[in-house]
Write a protein that binds this DNA or RNA. Sequence first.
DNA 1: TACAGGGGCTTACAGCGTTAACCCAACACG
DNA 2: CGTGTTGGGTTAACGCTGTAAGCCCCTGTA
Lengths: 214, 214
Amino acid sequence: MSDLRGRITVAAQELFAGEGVEGISMRKLAERVGVTATAIYRHFRDKDEILDALISAGLAVLSEYLEPALKAKDPERRLRGLIDAYLRFAVEQPKYFDLAFLVPSASTRMSEELERHNRATFKMAIEQVAACMQMGIFRPGDPIETAVYLWSTAHGLVTLHRMNRFGGDAAQFERLYHGAIERAMEGLRPPGGRRPAPPSQRSAGRDAILKDQA
Amino acid sequence: MSDLRGRITVAAQELFAGEGVEGISMRKLAERVGVTATAIYRHFRDKDEILDALISAGLAVLSEYLEPALKAKDPERRLRGLIDAYLRFAVEQPKYFDLAFLVPSASTRMSEELERHNRATFKMAIEQVAACMQMGIFRPGDPIETAVYLWSTAHGLVTLHRMNRFGGDAAQFERLYHGAIERAMEGLRPPGGRRPAPPSQRSAGRDAILKDQA
DNA sequence: TACAGGGGCTTACAGCGTTAACCCAACACG
DNA sequence: CGTGTTGGGTTAACGCTGTAAGCCCCTGTA
């Protein structure tokens, strides 16, 4: 009883929020929940398992950022919303972003949970891209490849920014980010004018079955 | 005498090559060069300074990858060469790549050396982009912004690959990478046909003074 | 009532980065 | 020649880390 596992998890989140990964130690964690360090091992195999839980929490936060974007009416807006949300997540939750997407050791492990989340999130992006293609907003092509392309661009920008690889302040970076995304999306548009072939049904793209991304 | 600093540095590189960053400890390092752990502190302020030296070494390796690309005749080939080299570096020297571009703590510090190298490398890319624009291979625009865009795309792809975020084997990823780069460069081409305005002088782009990237 | 097991506890180990104090050989200078 | 000074090594020690081993008690069940 008393759900010590849960209490350890939230203590880890608090500690992480305050001092980052470096600030998390078994003893500090234990003290925070009023227990001995070794007691934790009754509930977690090792420290990595705690970090896994932390990454899961971070991914849940990411989901909160992404979800509202899907409420937009047209797929292009939804896609842009996802991309914006990715930026906002990285900027507003830098510790979580680093933990989930930067620290190599933490994620080359790739727990079940992480992989599941990764796949689900990515699927959201693919669906919007597919819908954009079907509505003639993008020229036809492989939606998976296109989504990878967009995600990579966003991820690269955000990652390099997180590592201070671009000088400049937050506002400058935001302009850079949106400019680059704009450019990338512009390159996906159909060659002639806009929207050469309207879709047969309005919601065809949303419900399309997408092949597995493996 | 006896250049202990140098010997420590190479010992660090050997240890790093074998076991990665995690495998480096002051005591192991000291034992390797036949000295006490604390003796190291006469030559390095702390462990971070050793890691800095390691990052520098990694960046030197990156330079070796990049440099041959500049030998190509036309700027587009040079640019592609740089981008290819970036991929090859990440794939063939994963530990160095992770150290220099992934581990957050290691590079948010951003030593003088790192910043200098970063700037120099980036400048190489900007020059090729500028040359491409002047020769009408790319449509006109801000070469810095465009270079950032290309670099981010490449970096995002490579980073996500390093974190196993795409399934699939090395060959699959290589196709993905080149496909995405192709797409990105395609989006930079002039709108009508190709090459609408040849340059007045052949080498104008190479020697153009580029505004500082700050 | 006896037993089993979950879940704490203490103790301990091996390793970490780093500081303080010491010591010795080489050199500079009056 | 004697005498600092100093560069570059030493030992000892501090306070941390993750984690294993063994003990013990409380609870639930046969």
